[in-house]
Design a protein around this nucleic acid. Structure first.
Lengths: 360, 360
DNA sequence: ATGAAAGCGCTAACAC
DNA sequence: GTGTTAGCGCTTTCAT
């Protein structure tokens, strides 16, 4: 621990105050202020009425010694830590990172601490990380689920431990979750393409065996086709098996192989923007012209959509709202506040750029 | 806290063991095993020799009750938490996110917990976040510095508190840091362009008043020019003032304004890939053809380099190594291991794609 | 080789 | 309105 206190004074400058050899404890404040430690505690926690004069003496001592309550001791006593855990499959995935930024903002505002853990898309690792987080007395937990693994969510839920699930629908109706309407997203995308005259529509996606998000986007695509009376041509569906974003060698080669001789559809929907980026690259390499020959619509509305060629029309995901709302939901639960809606499905909308043109 | 223990049994299945109403403590283990709590402690920490039979009894009890030591109580006693803090300006910046992924991997391997805090590019916020982290008894701290703020680094350092600085050179020679050789990066880029016949070379960057990284890349650019006997043309230097990645409206408009009538240089170096992406967009909008009319070289080797048009030649940054090494360095310090090198400057290299062509 | 007990810094129930 | 004190779960010194 650090054995000094720091302040930012009125001039905005950081002042370091060396005090004895150690960080001051509640005892030091008590003797400095000439009161009992319980009085100090009550002043700090506003847990009992304390006379103004006494209160001032305590507060002055706090400032003088640069006292900050020891959260570890407090946690041990109260079984609360003002820390929340967030488990995410991969922090380097920009989608996750953006949602986490939203969360971080809320934890800061509400004076909590965010403990991050990565599952690396592995339920066993996730399990271990939960235990480690629990060891630190986190007050609540947010799951991002890269795959279906209800056990890990359920076990915490069953104990009335505050949990919020993000980016996946929890089957347990009691578990609060927040998600975007993935099915709607791809459905809208298909509708959009159909309105532009397209009827031969392809889809590029991950293998969706155990990822709810992927599966829903696939189902939305199929529903979009059905809504518009278009049969699905399996040759137009490209499935990448790697399961990891940005390892797209497979879909690139499948695309090139399949459509080097065969005629491609006039438009594609993709599971994620990155697939659309890769698709654009692949078809350009094959000598197609985009968007003239082939229209594409992405999913995620990544910042890069503006910078690829053609600029990518994409389904916008409100990552910031997702993160903030998830964290508010969690902290409200922790603090025992009434929550109006526990399951939140955020709507999606299409951001138009230039990658889709009317079918000629 | 959760009032049950969980295991993953030999079949890989998760088993939930309900135990009384609460998480078992060391006392429960002691009475279950018929020994004293101190013996349990010694078995768990290997802090004293304990007879094999006794040890087995303890370990059996631990498994039976699903005991996990309470890290909070342990922290209170030992002043160690096996938790490390990481402060980063913005988690949604892919560079930071990638480095953090490397760190996370090491914390997991070495059984530490990573507590994340964002400074949102604000030294005051950073200061607050440090205090919050310290309140939780973190054993060490990693700073990513989005700006120059030596006070915050120094105050921890002066207390012999384990610190590692990433992405910035600490002026204090005692502070361990790890960074890429930013100056070398832009220098290499200029050399590369010169070798391809270019002598009119532009630079797109952030304002670099108080960001070491930005400044170094700028200096590297200038040095590259000087090395090759090329005078710097200030009209070829574009400075974005926003200070935030991905808010590039300013540089886009400056570029368009400045080179709509005036002849642009034949090649550009950029401070970050995103500037190169924006630059490509801007010049294409103006009717230039790339890379024919203008060559560009980026910095960062973002995944997107493959998907823009032309694919972007860029300076590769070893983010993974950076993160892992930083965390190893920190934990080695925490655990009092001998560290051979405390200041590490990682070399950089250029990844060639198609955005640079020989000057015609 | 194992047990007993103090104490880390704090909160909260109870005493005055 | 303020003080006294037990105890959260653990490590560690000192006894035995």
């Amino acid at each position: 621990m650090y054995n000094q206190a720091t302040f930012v004074n009125e001039a905005g400058k950081i002042v370091i105050v060396k005090k004895k050899g150690k960080r001051p404890s509640i005892k030091d404040i008590a003797s400095e202020a000439g009161v009992n430690i319980s009085t100090v505690s009550h002043v700090l926690n506003k847990s009992k009425f304390v006379m103004d004069v006494t209160k001032k003496r305590v507060l002055d001592a706090v400032e003088k010694l640069g006292y900050r309550p020891n959260m570890v001791a407090r946690s041990l006593r109260t079984k609360k830590s003002r820390a929340v855990g967030v488990i995410v499959p991969d922090i380097a995935n920009p989608f996750f990172a953006q949602v986490i930024r939203g969360m971080e903002e809320v934890t800061r505002q509400r004076k909590y601490t965010l403990i991050l853990a990565c599952s690396f898309y592995n339920p066993r690792v996730e399990r271990d990380q939960i235990d480690i987080l629990m060891d630190h007395f986190i007050d609540g937990l947010i799951f991002f689920c890269g795959y279906d693994s209800p056990e890990n969510v359920d076990f915490t839920q069953k104990n009335h431990f505050p949990v919020v699930v993000v980016d996946r629908y929890a089957e347990n109706i009691e578990t609060p979750w927040i998600n975007v309407d993935n099915m709607l997203g791809t459905e809208l995308a298909v509708d959009y393409l159909v309105r532009r005259g397209h009827r031969e529509i392809g889809f590029v996606t991950f293998s969706h065996e155990n990822q709810t998000t992927v599966r829903h986007r696939y189902e939305g695509f199929m529903r979009g086709l059905a809504n518009n009376g278009i049969p699905c041509n399996p040759e137009y569906v490209i499935i990448e098996n790697s399961g990891r974003l940005k390892e797209l060698t497979e879909s690139l080669s499948i695309l090139k192989e399949r459509f080097s001789s065969r005629k491609p559809p006039t438009a594609f929907v993709t599971m994620a923007d990155i697939f659309a980026f890769a698709l654009i690259r692949a078809f350009k390499d094959m000598g197609f012209r985009l968007p003239g020959d082939i229209s594409v619509i992405g999913f995620g509305n990544d910042d890069m959509c503006d910078y690829v060629d053609p600029p990518l029309t994409s389904v916008f995901m409100p990552t910031d709202i997702m993160g903030k709302t998830a964290m508010e939901l969690l902290i409200d639960q922790i603090e025992g506040r009434e929550i109006e809606r526990k399951q939140i499905l955020l709507p999606l909308r299409i951001v138009e750029r230039q990658s889709v043109v009317d079918r000629r």
